[in-house]
Every structure is written in structure tokens, then in C-alpha cells.
């Protein structure tokens, strides 16, 4: 499950019939150094490419969500649906404490 920030919504005009009633969010993956503050103050956009995820929780702009990608994203549905990213959690807080010796990148 990747952590991302909801930065917008997507409305489809023409879509696969199985998408009926679907809600889509534009999400930008978070950089690790912003994990600790992301739920309080809006983190800056990261350089990682944003993705569109099917929203099953009603997340809105600025929410920090957990996104599952891959075939597991289709598990919650009763019918076949061609999606590969879905929101599974809206985070209230994140605590990121890398060990000092092998802290990544910075």
C-alpha cells in the first residue's frame, strides 16, 4: 500500500460500463520526509508521477490516503472491473522514524 496525497478529482464522460457510479481521485505519491507532517500541513507535490485511483472511501482534496495497486484493487467488487488502483485507507496520522544510520536519501 503506497501513501499518496489526494490532489484532485477526475470525472469521466465516456467509461467502461462496469465503472458506473465510480469516483476517481488524482493522487500524488508522498515523499518519505513529509510523512510526519503530511496529515497536519499540506505537503508539497512530489516528483513521483501522480496516479488516478478508484475511491471507495470518499476521500477529498488534501487527504492522505493509502492506495493499493495491482489485481488486488479489483477484490472488493462483485463484478469484473478493469482497475488497478484503489484507496483503502485515509490516514489520520503517520509516524516515520528511520534509523539514523541507514536513513534513506537525506
Amino acid at each position: 500500500m503506497r501513501i499518496a496525497q489526494v490532489i484532485g478529482r477526475v470525472t469521466l464522460s465516456v467509461q467502461d460500463p462496469s465503472y458506473k457510479g465510480g469516483r476517481w481521485l488524482m493522487c500524488n505519491p508522498l515523499e518519505a520526509e513529509h510523512y510526519n507532517t503530511a496529515c497536519q500541513t499540506l505537503p508539497p507535490l512530489s516528483a513521483q508521477s501522480s496516479l488516478i485511483a478508484y475511491d471507495s472511501l470518499g476521500a477529498g482534496d488534501g487527504d492522505i490516503v493509502g492506495i493499493v495497486e495491482g489485481a488486488e484493487a479489483t477484490a472488493p467488487f462483485d463484478h469484473d472491473i478493469p482497475i488497478d488502483a484503489i484507496t483503502v485507507a485515509i490516514f489520520d496520522s503517520l509516524k516515520y522514524e528511520p534509523p539514523v544510520s541507514t536513513s534513506s536519501k537525506h
Binding site: 472511501l57 496520522s93 509516524k95 516515520y96 528511520p98 534509523p99
Partner: peptide, 15 residues
């Protein structure tokens, strides 16, 4: 490597 934890009160029921 475990580097922290996350708290979510609004998530998929199975979690």
C-alpha cells in the same frame, strides 16, 4: 525495515 506506523480511522472494513 520497520520505520514507523500509520493510524487510520477510516479504512476498508477488512483492515
Amino acid at each position: 525495515l520497520v520505520v514507523g506506523h500509520a493510524v487510520s480511522s477510516h479504512s476498508h472494513p477488512s483492515l
